[in-house]
Design a binder for these strands. Structure first.
Lengths: 108, 108
DNA sequence: TATAGCACTTTGTATGGCAAAGTTAATAAG
DNA sequence: CTTATTAACTTTGCCATACAAAGTGCTATA
């Protein structure tokens, strides 16, 4: 009979949202959680990611329904705004809760 | 002139210890941080990992110097004990601090 | 026309996780 | 003596993903 991992207060591996867990996206999501939205260039500077990488990471976040990507022209220059969605906010909060819950059982 | 990401209180991507960050190993390390040491079977049950995966994850932790793997025979059965090292304890604490620091700036 | 800025997209490489199957070593059961 | 069982691997193969680098398209400006 296969056994389930017993409840130790630690999260089950599968519970961790890997879309958010990936460091680059964790950083993007942290900024968005605070600012709600940010433009491409800003995120690029904050994260230190290259154009290509930032682009692919926000596309993944978009596919997960965590952000909305809005393209406009401002001052006749392209401006890409990345906007956190409600689902994205919730997912990030869940992730945060899970991590903190895990660390709670751990104090020296 | 290339720009450094400005200090927002969020960690730099490269600062995240990916050896620990990987969910499976995060779970292993959490247990070890509390228990200091644990045997193979126990960790396998707690994490729900397969033999092979658990084995390869603890090998990675060993290569990083975070655990020591001790093989003995008890009751005439092989017993593999995974013991957290000092370095492992420190690395985990650093990881935890970094994560919590990141979440600190984020409260609704 | 050439250049620069912004935001991609594509391509290639390297890594890494995971499942599955096979292996070894020791003992227990028949 | 043979087979099975337990514990713990190791190996193989697949697939996803991260990242760098290079090229593309669009707009505006010199």
């Amino acid at each position: 009979m296969p056994e389930e991992p017993s409840d130790t207060g630690f999260p089950i591996i599968d519970d961790i949202d890997r879309v958010i867990h990936e460091p680059a996206r964790l950083l993007i999501m942290s900024h968005l959680y605070v600012l709600d939205s940010a433009n491409f260039l800003f995120l690029k500077r904050q994260t230190g990611l290259s154009d290509g990488n930032l682009s692919s990471h926000i596309t993944k976040l978009e596919n997960a329904g965590y952000v909305e990507i809005i393209k406009k022209f401002v001052d006749r220059k392209p401006l890409t705004v990345i906007q956190l969605t409600k689902g994205g906010r919730e997912a990030f909060r869940d992730y945060q809760r899970q991590m903190q819950h895990m660390f709670e059982g751990i104090r020296d």
